[in-house]
């Protein structure tokens, strides 16, 4: 009989822990890249593996082998630590959202608030990473990251409260389960909330049209400009994990999480639902031009905050 501690340890390490999430991260990066490429009438990844499915992994390996340069002016310790910290944060956030099983790896009453907190911390770590590299492009990029957070954080938090109010729980796992057991899916009853959340998550994971912190034609690579080699590999992996995070969060809060009928393993439902969300995100990414930072902030405060508040008002009035 294998002790329970070992099973728990393995679940963190392999399934649905690190290995599972990393595999999924590379897979979703491929989905995103391939889908956007096809929308743009390109081929996208093609050579590594069938349909280029191994390309993100190959890129990761390649970056690990590349020279790792630390700028002379950089704050060395912070510069080294932040990529690891970012990945760790993104992963631990994901542990509170149900992925492979109907319950998350770890959950408690109130983890919804904890997740919002972790997401904000992730943004702040980005700023520290940018600041520690001292390059002008990075600094401006880092400041833009935080400015962007000022825009998306408030509406995002507000709409995440909507499902919690109706299901009367502050745990993401319970919100997901509640939707399945009652058949009351929030995607149907709170559509405004869903839309606002997806737009905010686009800004959170810094995808076009909100890739302002990485605006290539203005800031080279923005806040990541100075990172190279292993650090860049970790940052890119973090970006992919954040993509899963976005997909998983929408799935859990609005689509009933990894649940479904017919006794099919819950991971299948998770995959289908998150892939759907990621395709929507990729599609939006291919559709718009990049906004200017002032336009983005103005738009979020002028349209998304009122919409989010409207959704909450509707919820408290009993609609949704």
């Amino acid at each position: 009989m294998v002790p329970a501690e070992i099973i728990e340890f393995l679940s963190v390490l392999i399934y649905p822990g690190f290995i599972f999430i990393f595999t999924l991260a590379f897979f979703y990066e491929w989905v995103d890249r391939k889908f956007v490429a096809r929308l743009q009438n390109r081929y996208g990844p093609l050579y590594a593996g069938p349909g280029g499915i191994l390309q993100p992994f190959a890129d990761f390996i390649k970056l690990l082998a590349k020279e790792d340069i630390t700028p002379r002016a950089a704050d060395k310790t912070t510069f080294r630590v932040t990529p690891i910290l970012m990945l760790a944060l993104a992963l631990s956030t994901l542990f509170f959202i149900p992925t492979a099983y109907t319950t998350a790896v770890s959950w408690f009453e109130g983890d919804l608030i904890f997740v919002t907190f972790l997401v904000s911390i992730l943004v702040l770590i980005t700023l520290i990473a940018a600041w520690s590299s001292t390059s002008t492009f990075s600094t401006v990029g880092g400041i833009r990251v935080v400015l962007q957070m000022l825009g998306f954080e408030i509406p995002m938090t507000i709409v995440m409260v909507g499902p919690a109010i109706v299901s009367k729980t502050l745990s993401i796992t319970n919100i997901a389960l509640w939707q399945y057991t009652t058949g009351h899916y929030f995607a149907i009853y709170q559509p405004i909330g869903l839309i606002v959340l997806i737009i905010c998550l686009l800004a959170e994971i810094k995808k076009a049209p909100f890739d302002i912190p990485e605006a290539e034609s203005e800031l080279a690579a923005g806040w990541i400009t100075e990172f190279s080699g292993r650090k860049l590999a970790l940052i890119r992996l973090t970006t992919d994990v954040e993509l899963i995070l976005a997909g998983a969060l929408v799935t859990a809060l609005f689509l009933g999480g990894p649940t479904g009928p017919f006794g099919i393993p819950s991971v299948i439902f998770f995959l289908i639902k998150t892939t759907g969300v990621i395709l929507v995100i990729s599609n939006l990414r291919a559709l718009f031009a990049r906004f200017r930072i002032d336009q983005m902030l103005g738009g979020f405060w002028k349209y998304l905050v009122p919409l989010a508040l409207l959704q909450i008002i509707l919820v408290t009035l009993g609609v949704g």
Binding site: D211, A215, E216, S217, L287, R290
Partner: peptide, 16 residues
């Protein structure tokens, strides 16, 4: 120009 304003889809189409 499309690329400068971050609209890569148009950029790809035009160059195609």
């Amino acid at each position: 120009a499309a690329h400068e304003i971050g609209f890569d889809t148009l950029f790809m189409y035009l160059w195609r």
